[in-house]
Amino acid sequence: MVGPSAEKPSFSKALAPYRVVALVGAVYAVAALISPERAGHAALVAAKSFLGVAPIIVAVFAALGLVQVFVDKQALARHLGDRAGLPALLTAAAAGTILVGPVFVIFPLMKTLRDHGTSWAVITTTLTAWAVKLPMLPLEAGFLGWKFAVARTVLTLMTAVAMGAIMGRLMRDSEQTKR
């Protein structure tokens, strides 16, 4: 759940994402000066592709909301903490896909796990799998086809496990016994 610190209302922060929109708008303005028809065509393509996937986008965010509320992050984290070896990494990969939340919630949660002795391998695998976001799959499939979306997701999860193992070595998990 999002803590009170996440709600810091800052005007400039709230408007920050719209800077990108303004930038794209400026590009459109330049494009319209060069060729009004083609700029209009671009806007039409933009609106059409947006409307085409709008239902999926709405559904995906509704699903993300459910996962965020009904998946107990703390319990998931505790579960991750008491495993080791390959099973630990597989669990981490699975857990990561259903972990939903913004960076400023997930990073500190992972840090807490780390402070309680969870290996860097498990942290890395969970973080990598967290980036996969299973509820997003229909959206990716909508744009790129199911075959592409599923293949990419499965490969990314396998890579998450491999990355965990590699990071475990590089960060010397086995040598870090002191706390």
């Binding site: 929109v21 459109y28 494009a31 806007a43 039409l44 933009a46 592709s49 709405v58 909301g65």
Partner: peptide
């Protein structure tokens, strides 16, 4: 959950507008 979902959606909306604008260009 619904409130959380719509909050993430509104947070993401500018990005979507920008990205689809870019796609058109």
């Amino acid at each position: 959950a619904l409130a959380g979902g719509s909050k993430s959606f509104t947070g993401m909306l500018p990005t979507f507008i920008a990205v689809f604008g870019l796609v058109g260009l």
